[in-house]
């Protein structure tokens, strides 16, 4: 699908206001162009699966949406506010790729790390209130990590650390959840639980989800829209259109496309 047709009218009208709009967005990494000319609209309540080969700019794209990447050209609008002026950070939960650069040994307990997720909605000194503690307890319970709340983050396994970081992203009850390869360190059981929690948030609370993953099965089960990136947006449309797209089966690979679509 060509960039001009990236936003069929029904996507823009279905849920009213858009969560994210990008206009001619081009991104670079250390001055090197990575993504070119991306124009699309992500509506409230969309669950967008972002796929593409390694190095295709998936992470660069989602990082640019929240002001962490280098935007060479174009505009990003989040919740109807230009990115440069955006300040409602409490509405966004971001889970980066597994934190490899966690300072070691970082002296913080699981409780302390999860509480960081609540800082966005506060002003310095950003003190926690009783209600915040309840929210932390609920989130820890939701992810099944209440029993390790007093452990130091560095003592945990990779999977447990990832669940803690997810708890940090969810604790503020965000309207937009951006997940970058969230399940790489998780065992199959926890992975299932993780996707079912995110899926429920999307269905019941209309939380908009952007999911970058190589886990084709997960995308097939949950995504309502697909974005295929490879230096530019080669496809952006409904999940059903993605499955019917002959162009996508040629580009993305018939086998992978089959895995995604078959499991849906």
């Amino acid at each position: 699908m060509k960039p001009d047709n990236l936003n069929p009218p029904e996507f823009q009208e279905k849920n009213g206001k858009a969560a994210i709009i990008t206009e001619n967005l081009s991104c670079s990494y250390r001055k090197r162009p990575v993504l070119e000319n991306i124009t699309l609209t992500i509506n409230h309540g969309d669950y967008v699966g972002i796929v593409g080969p390694n190095g295709s700019g998936k992470s660069t794209f989602i990082r640019a949406l929240i002001g962490l990447g280098e935007i060479a050209e174009g505009n990003v609008t989040i919740f109807e506010t230009a990115l440069e002026r955006f300040s409602q950070w409490w509405r966004i939960g971001y889970l980066p790729q597994f934190l490899q650069h966690l300072p070691h040994p970082f002296p913080a307990t699981v409780n302390e790390i999860v509480s960081l997720g609540l800082m966005a909605g506060k002003r310095p000194p950003r003190r926690l209130k009783a209600l915040d503690m309840t929210r932390i307890n609920e989130t820890l319970a939701l992810l099944g990590i209440s029993d390790i709340r007093s452990k130091q983050i560095g003592e945990l396994s990779g999977g447990q650390q990832q669940r803690v970081l997810l708890a940090r992203a969810l604790v503020n009850d965000p309207d937009l959840l951006i997940l970058d390869e969230p399940t790489t360190a998780l065992d199959p059981e926890t992975r299932e639980r993780f996707y079912s929690i995110v899926g429920e948030m999307n269905r019941n609370r209309k939380v908009t989800v952007l999911l970058v993953t190589h886990d084709s099965g997960a995308i097939g089960k949950h995504a309502s829209k697909m974005l295929y990136l490879d230096k530019k947006a080669l496809f952006y449309g409904s999940f059903e259109d993605f499955c019917l797209s002959r162009e996508m089966s040629e580009t993305f690979g018939e086998h992978t496309q089959h895995i995604i679509c078959h499991r849906h």
Partner: peptide, 23 residues
């Protein structure tokens, strides 16, 4: 230090996550 304790704690943990939390 007392007033900006949580901000300092957050950037010590991860600067990027702190940034998109409005710090």
């Amino acid at each position: 230090i007392c007033f900006f304790y949580n901000d300092l704690f957050y950037i010590s943990f991860n600067e990027e996550l702190a940034k998109i939390s409005g710090i």
